[in-house]
């Protein structure tokens, strides 16, 4: 009897250890603490790995052609390039530009209008959207339950091989939370490991003076909702944050995006209207559209000389984090998909 108890105890311990490869987010000590509370669901290496497989798996769309990565490619800091508005199944076009995905652990609200309040709920939006993946979590769970590769992986994480909606969504959440971009030239300069050149330094000063109120360091966003003076597109009629709060004061406000990896996350703005950084700076310089909810900081525009514009762009390029974009642990999980 006692032997049996010891035996079971041992198995329990082994299983416990195997499932306990918890990982911590690594970020500079000068950063604020993440908002994501992982007490309920600590990050775990195996879960992050499996979440990555789901992220790259086109089975998540109704016709098995589109994965999350189709619109959020790691080589573009997890956004979609060359299209203004994201393309989904059957080449349907959505109404907004896909944002880059990183440092989600520091964000309270997701989406341009903050429609989503929790990273684990995020995947439901594209999965159900008829112009994006056109599927449902129910359909996906049924498909995955027939896939031996997932059965095996779930079994090794959860001790049973049941694939549920809750598990799928939380795994995707784990992968996305694990994406931290904090190794740009800017970060190395801040930690004293590198130096800005003269131009970048002038650009940084201009940035601190004119932009950092909203694009706040070190995340390069304060993640608030603001109207930065874009003229509303009469066709898209996107009222932004007001759709969620139903408050007129939130009309035309959108979430301030992070400017990390901005070199690669074009096109810019919620509707992807600008292709180049110089166009964005021109916007702040002389295209500010006045409306009731325009952020007071921008009432007079932010004006730059031609040289200053070049300096500012030079600084923005120091926010590129190639180590993040090309990290093998963020790329297509070939090993997982190649198993028989």
């Amino acid at each position: 009897m006692r032997l049996i108890a010891i035996f079971f105890g041992l198995i329990f311990l082994l299983v416990g250890f195997r499932n306990n490869q918890s990982i911590e987010l690594i970020f500079p000590s000068s950063w604020p603490e993440p908002i994501y509370n992982d007490d309920n669901y600590p990050l775990n290496e195996q879960k992050v790995e499996l979440g990555r497989a789901l992220f790259f798996d086109p089975q998540l769309s109704s016709d098995n052609t589109i994965s999350c990565a189709s619109c959020h490619s790691p080589y573009n800091a997890f956004t979609h390039v060359d299209h203004q508005l994201s393309h989904g199944i059957n080449d349907r076009i959505g109404t907004r530009n896909s944002p880059a995905i990183f440092n989600l652990a520091w964000q309270k609200d997701l989406m341009w209008d903050g429609a989503i309040h929790h990273v684990d709920a995020q995947a439901l939006a594209p999965i159900n959207h008829p112009d994006e993946m056109g599927s449902s979590i129910n359909e996906i769970v049924q498909k995955l339950n027939k896939d031996v590769r997932y059965k095996k992986a779930f079994k090794s994480i959860y001790s049973d091989d049941l694939i549920t909606g809750e598990r799928v969504l939380k795994l995707l959440g784990q992968f996305m939370i694990s994406l931290v971009s904090c190794d740009s030239k800017y970060d190395r300069v801040m930690s004293g490991k590198d130096k800005f050149d003269e131009q970048e330094k002038r650009g940084y000063e201009l940035f601190c003076k004119n932009c950092s109120e909203c694009h706040k360091e070190p995340l390069f966003s304060d993640y608030s909702f603001r109207n930065n003076g874009l003229e509303p597109d009469p066709q898209l009629k996107d009222i932004g944050r007001m759709k969620i709060t139903q408050n007129r004061m939130d009309s035309l406000k959108f979430k301030v995006p992070s400017l990390r990896n901005i070199e690669f996350t074009f096109p810019y703005m919620h509707d992807g209207r600008y292709k180049k950084l110089t166009e964005v700076i021109d916007h702040y310089d002389r295209k500010i559209h006045f409306s009731n909810t325009l952020d007071p900081i921008l009432e007079k525009g932010i004006h730059f000389t031609t040289n200053e514009k070049v300096d500012l762009v030079a600084f923005l390029l120091t926010l590129t984090d190639k180590n993040f974009m090309f990290a093998p642990e963020h790329g297509y999980p070939k090993d997982f998909f190649d198993q028989k």
Binding site: A115, H117, H118, A125, N128, H129, N138
Partner: peptide, 8 residues
């Protein structure tokens, strides 16, 4: 089917 998708 009792979870909103476009807003959580």
């Amino acid at each position: 089917g009792m979870y909103w998708s476009w807003q959580s």
